[in-house]
């Protein structure tokens, strides 16, 4: 490194400078975190498998192509075995990833749509609006989320979109708190005052300063909302009030697998592992991103 304390020494030409941007530094911190990087790669593989599910397996998720071999154990031909209704279990798991990740991502988008504007407004306006938002969040902390979700799921009679809505309803709180904290700390930053002193319009401040600086909490909030929603979907489906059969869902498969567990272990093990690995990967990725984007929070 060149000595930075001296005033104005000749420095490397621009061009090499691009790599030093704050986002690049965050990426380097992220890449140094092996667990998060590994989790990201695993998640990417799972996402690719979900997208290209028809290429990954020959049969459809609901095709009862192997009825004669129902409940067969894993083999080289059927990696995860066959389920009770004669469907290739690996295919079911792969298509289950579509449902699980799809719901996770949609719910995260929904959380963002609710949490981002509310958090930004609460942090920026402060005062009464902030008070109301914080009281609402307090309500959410007092109601047990799973029970409420259960209730809402019965109320809406389940289904994919109901679950997305419910997960978003409980997911926005985190996003909102993250964005609010960022915007709030931001309001006290002096470069905002400097911009005001320059006569910058509120629009300029939001566009040039607020949005670029809020990228990190938004990314972190988004990624961390995914495993939460996936967990909720699996939980509701496990209880039979989430995604309805024959749509393949891991939670549902675990529920069915429980009944066969004593004799046909593969029926329970694979959906359990699929869910655990995916949720774990998404959480580790989110934690890693948080540490990389906001080094001050490290170790929390």
């Amino acid at each position: 490194m060149t000595d930075l304390s001296a005033a104005g020494p000749a420095l490397p030409r621009p061009g090499s400078a691009k790599r030093r941007s704050p986002l690049y530094l965050a990426w380097r911190r992220f890449a140094a975190n092996k667990a998060a990087l590994g989790a990201g790669i695993i998640l990417l593989v799972i996402i690719l498998m979900a997208i290209f599910a028809p290429l990954v397996s020959k049969t459809g998720p609901n095709e009862q192509a192997f009825l004669t071999k129902a409940l067969a154990f894993p083999s080289s031909e059927h990696w995860f075995g066959i389920d009770d209704l004669g469907r290739d279990f690996f295919t079911r798991i792969v298509y289950g990833a579509r449902v699980s990740l799809g719901i996770g991502l949609s719910a995260a988008v929904f959380s963002l749509l609710l949490g981002l504007p509310l958090g930004a407004l609460a942090g920026y306006l402060g005062g009464r609006f902030d008070w109301v938002i914080m009281r609402i969040i307090e309500l959410f902390s007092v109601v047990p989320p799973l029970l409420a979700a259960l209730l809402l799921a019965t109320l809406t009679r389940g289904g994919v979109w109901a679950i997305v809505l419910i997960a978003g309803l409980f997911g926005w709180v985190n996003v909102c708190l993250l964005v609010r904290a960022q915007v709030k700390s931001f309001r006290e930053k002096e470069f905002i005052m400097a911009a005001q002193a320059l006569g910058a319009s509120p629009w300029h401040i939001v566009w040039r300063h607020l949005i670029p600086n809020s990228v990190s909490p938004v990314i972190v909030g988004f990624v961390l909302a995914i495993p939460l929603a996936m967990m909720l979907e699996a939980s509701l489906s496990f209880l039979g009030i989430g995604v309805q059969p024959p749509t393949p869902s891991w939670g549902q498969m675990i529920n069915v697998g429980m009944n066969f567990m004593y004799f046909y272990w593969h029926m329970a093990v694979f959906p359990v592992l699929a869910l655990a690995v995916t949720i774990l990967a998404a959480s580790l990725l989110g934690d890693g991103l948080r540490d990389a984007l906001d080094p001050t929070l490290k170790g929390r």
Partner: peptide, 23 residues
């Protein structure tokens, strides 16, 4: 800590049964 906080409790329960009761 990460496992316990991220993996749903019914997954843990299922695994417990599988390992300690079934196997």
């Amino acid at each position: 800590a990460t496992l316990g906080l991220t993996i749903p409790v019914f997954v843990i329960s299922t695994l417990l049964i599988l390992v300690f009761a079934v196997w």
